[in-house]
Design a protein around this nucleic acid. Structure first.
Length: 351
DNA sequence: AAGTCGGGGTG
DNA sequence: CACCCAGACTT
C-alpha cells in the first residue's frame, strides 16, 4: 500500500530542475575527475565521507590516493599503515573494514552492483547504492543524510514519525530516474550542501523551491539526550627515553596506540580529585610501582556518545619494569604508530 | 529500535 | 555550549 504517489509531471520537473542546476553549480571534488573515476576511488571517498564533512575528507583522500594510487597498490597495504593515514579522521573501524574488504577483493573480484557490494565489510545500504549509481547508473534509491533532509523538507515529513524511514525510502525510490541516476544522486548531494543546508537553507535561490512543501521551515528533530562526561587517568610512564605504550583492545580506538588509561567513569565534578588519587594508587599498586607521580594537567576530548576528561599523570621509573601487554617506545618510534587525536592532545600536553 | 563508533567546524 | 556531517554494524 503506497502512502505516496508521485505523478510523472512532478518527477520530470524535479529531475530536469535538479540536473540543470547541477550542470552549472556542481562542486569540483577530487573523486569526481571523470577520467580516473573508478571503483577504488569512489569507494575510498564514500567510506571517508561517512559522517564526515567534505572539507575534512579532501586532504585525507588526496593523501590516500597518493600513497596507494590504484586498487592493486592498495592490496599491499598493511592495517597499521592504513590506520596511520587515518589518524585524526575518526571512526577507525572504517579503516579496518577497508583492510578486510580489500583482502577479500584481492582473492575474489566482485561485480559492481548494489547487491554484491553490500557483502563487503563497511559497505552498507547507502554506499553500495551510491557506488553502483555513480559508476553503473544503477537505478537504485540512494539515500543518505543529505537526501533525507531534502526529501523531508520537500514532502514535509516528520523525522519523529515511526514511518519516517519507510516514507523516505518510498519517495526516494519513486524519484530515482531510470537513466543517469549517478549524476542525479550527486546533484542532490550538492544541492543539499550548497542550498538545502541543515541551517539557513537558501530557499530563495533553490531550483526546486516551487515543489517544496516546507519552504525553509525548520526540521523537527528528535529531542537530544544528555551526553555524559566521563573521567579517566592517562599514565605517562617514562624510563630514560622510553614511554610505556599499549595498543587499544577496546572497540573504541581499537588498534591505535595509547598511553595506559584507567577505566572511564562518570564522576561528579567535586569528586574528580578523589577519582584521580584512587585511580592512580590502584593502578600503581597493580603494577607494583613505588615511585612518586606528578599531575601534569588535563585535556578534554569529544567522542560521539560521551565526552572524556583525561587527567594526565607522569611517572618516571628508575628501571625498565616489565609490563604485560605494554611495550616501551621512544618518542620517535611512537610517532610512527597510529594514534588518535586524543592521544595527540595528551602528547602535546606532556611535552 | 537503540546504542556504539571521532572529531572538528559552525552558529 | 549544541548541532551536524555522502552511515555501518551490533545487540
Amino acid at each position: 500500500m503506497k502512502e505516496y504517489h508521485i505523478d510523472n509531471k512532478f518527477k520530470s520537473s524535479w529531475k530536469k530542475k535538479i540536473l540543470s542546476w547541477y550542470f552549472v553549480n556542481k562542486r569540483d571534488l577530487p573523486w569526481r575527475n571523470k577520467e580516473n573515476q573508478n571503483f577504488y576511488r569512489i569507494w575510498i571517498s564514500e567510506v571517508m565521507l561517512q559522517q564526515t564533512k567534505v572539507t575534512t575528507v579532501i586532504p585525507f583522500f588526496k593523501k590516500f590516493i597518493k600513497k596507494w594510487p590504484t586498487l592493486d597498490d592498495f592490496f599491499n597495504a598493511k592495517l597499521e599503515e592504513i590506520l596511520k593515514l587515518w589518524e585524526g579522521l575518526g571512526y577507525y573501524k572504517r579503516a579496518q573494514n577497508l583492510f578486510r574488504a580489500k583482502e577479500l577483493l584481492r582473492k575474489k573480484k566482485i561485480n559492481i552492483s548494489s547487491h554484491s557490494l553490500k557483502k563487503l565489510p563497511g559497505i552498507g545500504e547507502y554506499i553500495s547504492c551510491s557506488i553502483s549509481a555513480i559508476l553503473k547508473d544503477e537505478a537504485c534509491a540512494v539515500i543518505d543524510g543529505n537526501i533525507r533532509r531534502i526529501l523531508s523538507r520537500v514532502f514535509d515529513l516528520n523525522m519523529n514519525n515511526k514511518k519516517f524511514n519507510s516514507q523516505i525510502k518510498e519517495i526516494a525510490t519513486q524519484l530515482t530516474p531510470k537513466n543517469n541516476n549517478g549524476t542525479y544522486c550527486q546533484s542532490l548531494m550538492d544541492l543539499a550542501n550548497l542550498i538545502c543546508r541543515p541551517k539557513n537553507p537558501k530557499c530563495i535561490i533553490c531550483p526546486i523551491s516551487f515543489l517544496c512543501k516546507s519552504n525553509g521551515k525548520e526540521i523537527k528533530k528528535k529531542k537530544k539526550q544528555q551526553i555524559p562526561i566521563k573521567l579517566t587517568v592517562a599514565f605517562v610512564v617514562r624510563f630514560e627515553n622510553y614511554f610505556l605504550i599499549e595498543k587499544t583492545k577496546e572497540n573504541l580506538l581499537q588498534n591505535l596506540f595509547t598511553f595506559p588509561l584507567s577505566e572511564f567513569r562518570k564522576v561528579e565534578e567535586k569528586d574528580s580529585k578523589d577519582f584521580l588519587i584512587k585511580s592512580v594508587s590502584s593502578w600503581m599498586n597493580k603494577y607494583d610501582i613505588k615511585t612518586t607521580y606528578a599531575y601534569v594537567g588535563e585535556v578534554t576530548h569529544k567522542f560521539s556518545h560521551f565526552h572524556l576528561k583525561v587527567l594526565i599523570v607522569k611517572i618516571i621509573l628508575p628501571c625498565k619494569l616489565y609490563f604485560n601487554n605494554f611495550e616501551w617506545l621512544t618518542l620517535k618510534k611512537l610517532n610512527q604508530k597510529p594514534v588518535s587525536s586524543m592521544m595527540m592532545k595528551i602528547k602535546n600536553k606532556v611535552k
